[in-house]
Amino acid sequence: MNYHWNWHVYLDQVSAGDERYLDWIISALGWTIAVSMSAWLIALTLGALIGTLRTAPNRWLVAIGNVWVEGFRNVPLLVQLFLWFFVVPEFLPAELSRWVKQDMPAKEFFTAAICLGLFTSARVAEQVRAGIQSLPRGQKMASLAMGFTLPQTYRYVLLPMAFRIVIPPLTSEFMNIIKNSSVAFAIGLMELTFISRQMIEESGQVFESLLAATLLYTICAFSANRVMTYIEKRTRVPGYIAGAK
């Protein structure tokens, strides 16, 4: 293997412009974090809502929830991204369509965040549903028996426990969202994967380019893991053993 190592490459100037590769990487990290966090917010909000709907005592709400989950779960993320980026704008009202295609600022960012958020919301919904359904049936009964309405029962009794139960699977979804944000390169968002490919092309330093992006992804995912573990510890219920009834 003859490979010319160059650990200074990060400080080298890019071919066009006066930036260094390091500046590229830092800004790419920013986009990766921004997309992941926005998508995570969307995924948590919609996922909790849809997951709850799927346990509702109403056939239509359950059906909507099922269609949502199956739809987003059975099409590859990259294909969904292309649908949002290329196809959806075509179906918008004429004015809006023109604006999205020509003038919309940070179009790649918003498309990626929405796409990734909805994709992950289906997976979060599935976890939330399972969490709610894993609670003993008597909990809902006891709450109703005390005079709580069904929405109150969800708000005060079912969801607080269900969320505690699903924190571990949600942790891996949070880490997944960071890893999955890499597909955004395909629509030209200048996040870590995009920049590492760009850097390979311009500098020829394959190893250093990939290493920087890989390490940063790993650090992000690890931080997400720490945050969720902290939340899990803070919300732990004394004397309650998950899975025991």
């Binding site: 008597g138 009964m141 028996a145 005390m146 009794v157 607080p160 505690r164 219920v237």
Partner: peptide, 17 residues
């Protein structure tokens, strides 16, 4: 109505959190 009728269950059903 339920708020005025007390109920006690077999498995207690206290809210664990």
């Amino acid at each position: 109505l339920r708020a005025r009728v007390g109920m006690v269950f077999q498995h207690f059903e206290l809210f664990p959190h």
